[in-house]
Design a protein around this nucleic acid. Sequence first.
RNA 1: GUGAUUGUAGCUCAGUCGGUUAGAGCGCCGGAUUGUGGUUCCGGAGGUCGCGGGUUCGAGCCCCGUCUUUCACCCCA
Length: 458
Amino acid sequence: MQKPTVPKGTRDFGPEQMRKRLFIFDTIRQTFQRFGFQPLETPSMENLTTLTGKYGDEGDQLLFKILNSGDFAGGLTEADLQAGSKKITPKIAEKGLRYDLTVPFARYVVMNRNALTMPFKRYQMQPVWRADRPQKGRYREFYQCDADVVGTDSLLCEAEIVLMIHEVFRNLGVLDFTLKINNRKTLAGIAEVIGEPGQEGLLSVAIDKLDKIGMEKVLDELRERGFSEESIRKLDPLFSFGELDRLQLLNQLKTWLTTSETAQQGIAELEETLQFVDQYGLTDSRIEIDPTLARGLSYYTGAIFEVKANGVSIGSVSGGGRYDNLTGTFGMPGLSGVGISFGVDRIYDVMEELNLFPAGAGQGTRLLLVPFDSAARAVALPLLSQLRASGITAEVYPDLAKVKKMLDYANAKAIPYVVLIGSEEVQTGLLSLKNMVTGEQTKTTASELIQLLRSTSF
RNA sequence: GUGAUUGUAGCUCAGUCGGUUAGAGCGCCGGAUUGUGGUUCCGGAGGUCGCGGGUUCGAGCCCCGUCUUUCACCCCA
């Protein structure tokens, strides 16, 4: 027998998982809306022309392509087949699954440029797909929750992103996290100062691995990529910022990168952003300026953010930054934007590993009505409506089954309360409320019952 | 894309040197108990050993392929 399976790197989410996931989605959505972002959804598939070339060569490889409908191979010639799969792909697939939410958003902005009020703030919570090999904290289908502002280069937006990150993780109960922040202009400045102007891309990928592989190996990689010994020597100060506080760090950066105008601008942006954050009154900030933070995506041009949960070995749970020209490739240059993306699946893994889901997050039905016969059921149904109208999640066992079966059902669904209704309850009008955790059973009226369930969270 | 790794009942896992009819715990179903679950006791169902091929008198076990799981690299949320 062929047992059914789901494709590699994809998962089903059962009821308990889904409730926890919805807790994460709801928490993030609340914050996005509170900050004035408006909802947007885009199609799962985009034209490949929209997607390719936006994520670098590596990214293009990771795109899921969708085979054309109909006789997709009909127009292929012998020469095409000889040319190999890379040449054939555009002839047989003109659509692909979205790789992130930022590029479809940029496409949307360009298509609706005349209708949108600028600055335009949108949030979007949808799955994205990447064709890489699954491993810990990495899936082929996963959800991102993005919030972006386009049409302004105000650093207030960067500051608000910092605030939203703090609010989201605090509301989730993930208190021990680090928000790393840096600026691509500073990185560009470093490349200038060490005598490798324009090479900040290569510099970034290598430096990004610092805390993973250590300084020596980073330097080896730079040598491999053609950086001169002199440049590498000039990079020294970057590794000596260890224990400095924010002010000292910024001053040292300014001194070191004094000859680069770009770097000075990056540092000034960083300072202004942090100043705004202070003015907003953020307390107990988890911000850490990290001059080595690089991030892979090539379209970032200003601030870059990355959030890691401490105490777990799962990659970043959130990341983002400013991009000056994302819409340029779609024929709309000069539109600046900044955004943040929360990775729901990784946040879930972190919260599960650290046991951070609140008891209410996995909670479904709170009360099961157990009528013993049809006369009892006639009492139960109006009561059920009354309970639901009071906002209490309640259900009745649909069959007139044995009491054991119904109580087993309550246990299986982890329903904490049961109301038993038999001939005695029908006659007296009093209900038997059973606490399934303690086993204790009391007589109660309908209104007392509602009051009790409203006043306790579970 | 590179290199490892995993797969036996719904779940977690045993299964000796290749040898008769593949086992356990938990879970599930029924009963003890027609107004009381989570404890106990009794009974029961449930397997193409991931899939395909090969070696062998004989394969869950050995070989090849393939899919899947997990992990590292690359890259990333």
